[in-house]
Design a protein around this nucleic acid. Structure first.
Lengths: 199, 199
DNA sequence: CCGGGCACTTACCGCTTGGTAAGTTTCATA
DNA sequence: TATGAAACTTACCAAGCGGTAAGTGCCCGG
C-alpha cells in the first residue's frame, strides 16, 4: 500500500496545515499521525516545502475539475452563476479544512512569493468573471466591476467558512446552528440581488 | 525613550505577525527590526505569547474606540449602517497589516482556543446586529438573519483587504488599480441593496 | 556622591526543527 | 535463487527556537 501511504500523508498534511499553518506543523507531527517517522515522509516528498506544494496542487486539481456545466442561454446566465456560487459555498462549508488552508495561502503568499507562481485561483476567477459578463444586465460592465462582485461574494463565502470556531465561541452552539441554517439562504438572496442590478 | 521602545516593539511585531503568522516569526527577528536583541524584547513582554496578546489587545482597543455615532432616527438607520460599514472597509483597506493579523487570528484560535477567551469581535458584531435591526425593514428579521448579513458584508470587506498580493500577482498592477477603484463603489451598492430587501 | 532601578547585553541552556547518511526489510522480477 | 529497487528505520547533525541567569552602563532621587 505504498501509493496509499502517499495519499495518507497528503491527507493528514492538508488537515494539519489547515489547522496550524505551515510553520505551526512539523513534518514529524504529520508523519506520526500515520504512525510513521518523518524520514518516511521525506522519502516520499523530499522536503516540507514540496509536501506543502503537493497539497496545494491536489486542491487546485480538484478545483479545476469542478465544472460549471455547459454555457446556458443568456436568460439563464444569472441562475447559472447563482447555482455555481452556491455549489462553491456548499463545498467550502463542507470542507472547512480546505477553506482554511486556501485562506492561509492567501495570507502567506506575500511573504513566500516565489512559490506563489501557481496562482491556482486564476482560471477559477476568470471563469467567474466570464459567467458574470454573460448575464445580459452585466454586458456593459467592466472587468473590474465583475471581479469586484465575484470577489465580494467569494469573500462572504470563505470568511464564513472559516469562522465556525470563533462564532461558536462568541454566540454558543444554539445560536450558531441558527446562523448555519440562515447563511446559505441569505447568501442565495444576496447573490440574486447583487447580480440583478449592476448599477 | 523606554516607553517608545515598547510601542516600537508592538509596531514591528504587528507587522511581522501579520505577514508571517505567529509561528513564522521569531522574537529575535522582531527585536532585530529595532536593532535590539531578543532579550530586550523579553525584558518588556516576558514571553512571545504575551507580546502577541498585547498586539491583539491594542488592536481590540482601537476597534472599541471606533464609535458609530449617536443612534439615528429609524428612517436613517440604513444609511447609518452603510456609513459605518464603509468606514470599516476604508480602515481595513488602509491598514492591510491589521486586517491580515485579525484574519490569522480567526484561523488560529481554533487550535489555540485557550487564549481565545478575548473574543474581541463580540461587542463589535453585537453592535452591527443592533444597527441592522434598527432598520425598519429588518425589524421582523431574526438575529441569525441579521448576523448572516453582517457577516457576509464583513467577509466581502476583509477577504478583499487581504488579497492584494495575490490579485496583483494574478492580474497585474493595472488591472488591480481598476479593481481597487471599483471595489468601494460596488461595496456601497452591495450594502444598499442587501439592507433594503430582507426577504 | 551614591544607591537602586531601568534598559539592555552577553552567555548559556535544553529542546525542536528540517534534513542527511547509512542501513534494514520486503518483495517483485529475471 | 540472486538482484535491485521501494519503503521504510535508526542514528546523527547543525541551526534555530524560546527562555533563564547574570551581568553592564546609565540616569535620577536622597
Amino acid at each position: 500500500m505504498a501509493a496509499g501511504t502517499r495519499e495518507q500523508f497528503l491527507d493528514s498534511a492538508e488537515v494539519l496545515f489547515a489547522e496550524r499553518g505551515f510553520y505551526g506543523v512539523s513534518i514529524a507531527a504529520i508523519a506520526s499521525e500515520l504512525g510513521l517517522t518523518k524520514q518516511a515522509l521525506l522519502h516520499h516528498f523530499g522536503s516540507k516545502e514540496k509536501l506543502y506544494g503537493e497539497v496545494l496542487r491536489r486542491i487546485s486539481d480538484q478545483f479545476e475539475s469542478m465544472e460549471p456545466g455547459p454555457d446556458p442561454s443568456p436568460a439563464d446566465a444569472g441562475h447559472h452563476l447563482k447555482t455555481y456560487l452556491l455549489d462553491i459555498a456548499q463545498t467550502a462549508l463542507q470542507s472547512p479544512d480546505r477553506t482554511r488552508l486556501l485562506m492561509r495561502e492567501l495570507l502567506d503568499n506575500k511573504h513566500r512569493a516565489e512559490r506563489a507562481g501557481t496562482w491556482y485561483l486564476k482560471p477559477f476567477l476568470e471563469r467567474l468573471i466570464g459567467m458574470v459578463r454573460a448575464i445580459p444586465a452585466w454586458r456593459e460592465a467592466g472587468d473590474a466591476d465583475a471581479l469586484a462582485l465575484v470577489y465580494q461574494l467569494l469573500g462572504a463565502i470563505n470568511y464564513f467558512g472559516v469562522s465556525k470556531p470563533t462564532l461558536l465561541g462568541i454566540f454558543g452552539s444554539d445560536a450558531y446552528a441558527d446562523l448555519d441554517e440562515a447563511f446559505p439562504q441569505r447568501l442565495g438572496r444576496l447573490i440574486d440581488i447583487a447580480i440583478s442590478s449592476p448599477d
